[in-house]
């Protein structure tokens, strides 16, 4: 199993730019979509309620534009989600784990195994439908934004967890 994660980088100074990142599981996009449509649904319901019961007539004249604006906004967010999805990547090396994401703001985080306090995997309801988990890695200190990889296959997550646990206890 370890072979799967081995990265043949044994140069003195490992170069972060030279490692191969793996994309997260494609079906996680469906999870994002479900969440996304849930939010849209709520907003849309709110808008319809406003349209039918709250807005006075002079405002309802412009209601079509409001709906259009609404659609346009969500289309924009959808495209953004779609494009940034392919930027979510992770990589494991001999001694550390990295994750990168972001379309407009690119973020790259690396946590060395020797600094990891504990590893967690968890499955949210929608993720579970597709057999996905998220993997969180905690380090000491203000652990608010340590590394979290969402949307990897459950087996993979458990394997990585196992792998890191072994590495920590070495």
């Amino acid at each position: 199993m370890t072979n799967y994660f081995k990265n043949d980088l044994v140069s003195e100074l490992p170069d972060i730019t030279k490692i191969e990142f793996k994309k997260i599981d494609k079906s996680y996009f469906k999870v994002i979509l479900i969440n996304f449509f849930l939010v849209i649904g709520l907003f849309l319901a709110g808008l319809i309620v406003l349209h039918q019961f709250v807005f006075p007539d002079y405002l309802n004249e412009y209601i079509l534009y409001l709906y259009l604006l609404f659609t346009f906004l969500f289309l924009l967010i959808f495209i953004f989600e779609k494009m940034s999805f392919s930027k979510r990547k992770y990589a494991l090396r001999e001694k550390d784990i990295s994750y990168k994401e972001g379309l407009i703001v690119k973020k790259l985080t690396t946590v060395p195994f020797s600094r990891i306090q504990h590893v967690e995997t968890d499955e949210k309801p929608f993720s579970r439908l597709f057999g996905l988990s998220s993997l969180s890695v905690y380090t000491a200190g203000d652990s608010s934004d340590d590394l979290v990889i969402k949307g990897i296959k459950k087996e993979t997550a458990l394997q990585i967890k196992e792998f890191i646990s072994i590495k920590i206890n070495e």
Binding site: K106, L108, T109, T110, A140, D146
Partner: peptide, 14 residues
């Protein structure tokens, strides 16, 4: 003593 390291780059920074 570093715990983890992060690099950030916006498209403007790029």
């Amino acid at each position: 003593k570093v715990q983890n390291i992060k690099m950030k780059q916006t498209i403007f920074q790029k």
